[in-house]
Design a protein around this nucleic acid. Structure first.
Length: 442
RNA sequence: GCGGGUGUAGCUUAGCGGUUUAAAGCGUCGCUCUGUGGCAGCGAAGAUCGUGGGUUCAAAUCCCAUCACCCGCCCCA
């Protein structure tokens, strides 16, 4: 270690080449599926006006209250590192006049997000999501389809033990009444609530339903449920979503207390969890091993028909969802079956001996690339022995050996690594001959 | 923000009953072998023991603080 010893800030990590393979594998699966269903990729900026999230994500959400990275520019603008995708994409939809495109507009994006939180397993301050959004579609079919797409992606990655939780939290015509109902229910039992929930009672009683404190859980079990208090329209919509899910054979679980941490949702909300039994060895040996189910949220989303208006446009019916890539990668790693397919390494190694051969190497390497032959080299090394050792380690089928003698004669040695058999090939035939032999091999 | 655990070469770890060059395996690089790999042998580089203080004649080891990571809580992806 040097004296200057820099390291990444808390909760922020490098994605090393070996992890990148998993990221790419996931993204290629996800892209293929959503593009088939008509989604177009776009990018939104990592930096946006902080107010976009304050208004969009919501002032009383944890994200805005305590997790957002905000900064002031030299010019005095207050910007924020994006903590989630949706407000930025809605902003882009409005700013770019996408309401004039044929509706629905189906978009997807992917990239880093930032939340200032206490890091933990699968939770980082810089993390990546894959996100899809559909605008201009009121039909419940799209709610179901968004849920379906994410289950398809997870299924394609061979994940099992998945739970889809769904609920409806109503809209502006029924939720205010439900909130009141919930408030008065909890107010009458405020003494049995935890400190946090007493605060939530004033700010946003829906959030109490999220609380994991045991005493709150008990109170909650008798609380009025959203689905019993939906207006006709919301009820019809939700029923229809569930029918679509049934028809599509998507197993789900109705969680009447699922509300999600964001303010802008209307009607349908959902989360997808991975449930994995993990053997845990108790510290007290007499207890032996117990099975603990660890549950982690992989994806979540919902409908947000009013966010357009909140952000200064018109009401835009919309449905979106996001999936946490690091959590997916962690599961892929835990699952040996999900190892990404080994990318084919180089097929050929070019070894050179001496100044002239080395000089001729650059051109030959490029000729091989143009002929679509995966070739590796070690131009910095001079010993043939070391170069062959490298070739061996890379597992190439053939090594081209270009020595002083060959360079002068206009030839090259083509060595088969498995048999050790060597042939002298004319330099102007080498690319062709190499390709021919590689074809024969496969 | 609140609890608990862990920090020794790039990686995995030994050493924690106080003392000299902090040890090993893997990996990296080199040599044996000047133009022929897999094996083997030999060798080298690489750690101010997370950081800063304290106790002591003496600290990787004991104490305090701090940072980072992991595990819970909260929230979520």
């Amino acid at each position: 270690m040097k004296k200057f010893h820099f390291q990444t800030p808390t909760g922020i990590h490098d994605v090393l080449p070996e992890d990148q393979e998993y990221f790419r594998k996931f993204l290629s699966v996800a892209r293929e599926i959503v593009e088939f269903y008509g989604f177009k990729e776009m990018e939104v900026p990592i930096l946006e006006e902080a107010a976009l999230y304050e208004k969009g994500t919501g002032e009383t959400t944890d994200i805005v209250e305590k997790q957002m990275y905000t900064l002031r520019t030299k010019g005095g603008d207050v910007l924020a590192l994006r903590p989630e995708f949706t407000p930025g994409i809605v902003r882009a939809y409005i700013q770019n006049g996408m309401m004039n495109l044929p509706q629905p507009v189906k978009l997807y994006t992917q990239g880093p997000l930032f939340r200032y939180e206490h890091p933990q397993a699968g939770r980082y301050r810089q993390f990546h999501q894959f996100d899809i959004e559909v605008f201009g579609e009121t039909s419940s079919a799209i709610d179901a389809q968004v849920i379906q797409l994410f289950t398809l992606i997870l299924k394609e990655l061979k994940f099992t033990h998945l739970i889809v939780e769904v609920n409806s939290i109503g809209d502006s015509s029924c939720r205010p009444y439900y909130k009141k109902l919930l408030s008065s229910f909890f107010r009458s039992r405020a003494n049995s609530l935890c400190q946090d929930c007493k605060r939530r009672l004033k700010e946003n009683p829906l959030r109490i339903l999220d609380c994991k404190e045991e005493k709150c859980q008990q109170v909650k079990s008798q609380a009025p449920q959203t689905i019993d208090h939906l207006c006709e329209e919301c009820k019809r919509h939700f029923k229809s979503v569930l029918e679509f899910l049934d028809e599509a054979d998507i197993p789900y679980h109705l969680d009447p207390y699922l509300v999600r941490g964001l303010d802008y949702y209307t009607k349908t909300v959902f989360e997808i969890f991975s449930e994995k039994p993990v053997k845990k060895i108790e510290e007290d040996p007499s207890q032996g091993e117990t099975e603990v189910v660890t549950r982690s949220a992989l994806a979540g989303g919902g409908r947000y028909d009013t966010l357009g208006k909140i952000l200064g446009g018109k009401d835009i019916p919309a449905m979106g969802a996001a999936i946490g890539i690091e959590r997916i990668v962690a599961l892929m790693k835990a699952n040996a079956a999900n190892l990404p397919k080994e990318k084919p390494g180089p097929q050929v190694f070019l070894a050179q001996l001496g100044e002239l051969p080395k000089k001729k190497s650059l051109k030959l390497l490029e000729e091989l690339r143009q002929a679509n032959v995966q070739v590796a080299e070690s131009l910095g090394r001079d010993s043939l022995r070391v170069q062959l050792a490298r070739a061996d380690k890379l597992g190439v089928a053939y090594t081209l050996i270009l020595g002083q003698k060959e360079a002068l004669e206009g030839t090259i040695v083509l060595r088969a690594m498995d048999t050790g058999k060597q042939d002298i090939v004319k330099m102007d035939k080498v690319v062709e001959e190499t390709k021919k032999r590689l074809r024969k091999k496969s």
